[in-house]
């Protein structure tokens, strides 16, 4: 695998221009549960941020506010300079620029792999079908699924499906990619193939926010690792420091459970 992104999404990793700026984000679920209690995080262009934390700490909720899948009530989130308003007014403009990969893949089962990847470029970006398919085939080739392009998702393994899901997001040429535990639903032998794709993507300079408990991946690829617990960010550190010399007691406790 050489290069996963398409030309338009090439990114300059040197500048430190922020892509996501979340300030004091607070969120309550409808049942009154205060899931985010003032979370701030800035993600710079070309950076890979890994989010860790115990189950139920609000990691998914937090990154889902970045593409407005979850509304929030207080604070502010800017993505690529666009403010995500609390009432989610400008959501489609933001979602075009933010790709998301889910734990459960969420491929469209009634469409072929190729149709899954071309759907959004055709209907949202308004690309002609031929162009969308050409780009899709190139992406599928790069995630190693080219031979399966005309199969349906249900005919693929979990690892293959997740790679298609990544290609589907990349087809929209997003400025930033969000990953919500992309390998947690996979059999162990398939975790690698997905992480390899993510690794390549990171090396090419894609801005990424990954919720994952893959320590090896975080050590190797992340620029920063943050720990979330109980709706707040507990620690924010370089991977080296985070794993070898954690500052917070809660980080130490969390690491002792997963390492």
């Amino acid at each position: 695998m050489t290069q996963i992104q398409t030309e338009a999404a090439q990114i300059d990793t040197t500048g430190n221009e922020p892509v996501i700026v979340a300030k004091d984000v607070e969120k309550w679920y409808d049942n009154g549960f205060n899931v985010l209690k003032g979370v701030s995080l800035t993600v710079y262009r070309g950076e890979v941020v890994v989010v860790m934390g115990p189950s139920g700490s609000g990691k998914s909720t937090f990154i889902r506010t970045f593409n407005a899948l979850e509304p929030y009530q207080r604070g502010s989130i800017e993505v690529d300079g666009i403010l995500i308003s609390h009432d989610l007014k400008n959501i489609e403009a933001i979602r075009r620029e933010v790709g998301m990969v889910f734990q459960q893949f969420n491929l469209f089962p009634h469409l072929t792999v190729l149709q899954n990847v071309t759907l959004a470029p055709i209907w949202v970006r308004r690309w002609p079908k031929a162009k969308a398919e050409e780009v899709a085939m190139r992406l599928l080739d790069r995630v190693g699924i080219l031979e399966q392009a005309h199969k349906y998702p249900g005919q693929l393994s979990g690892g293959q499906q997740q790679r298609v899901a990544i290609a589907r997001s990349l087809a929209m040429q997003p400025k930033v990619m969000l990953f919500d535990e992309p390998t947690s639903a996979l059999d162990p032998e398939m975790v690698r193939e997905v992480l390899d794709v993510m690794r390549t993507l990171a090396k090419e300079g894609m801005t990424m926010v990954c919720v994952t408990h893959e320590v090896g991946f975080a050590r190797e690829v992340a620029d920063r690792v943050v720990l979330m617990d109980g709706g707040v960010l507990v620690e924010e550190n370089t991977p080296m420091e985070f794993f070898n010399n954690p500052q917070e007691e809660r980080t130490q406790k969390f690491l002792s459970q997963i390492l």
Partner: peptide
């Protein structure tokens, strides 16, 4: 599944497109 709508939304599809291309066929 709800995930279908979320996946469509995260790709930038608006509500009518999500309904006609993703949810209704299934």
């Amino acid at each position: 599944p709800r995930g279908q709508q979320e996946a469509a939304a995260s790709l930038g599809l608006n509500t009518p497109l999500t309904l006609t291309l993703i949810v209704l066929p299934q």
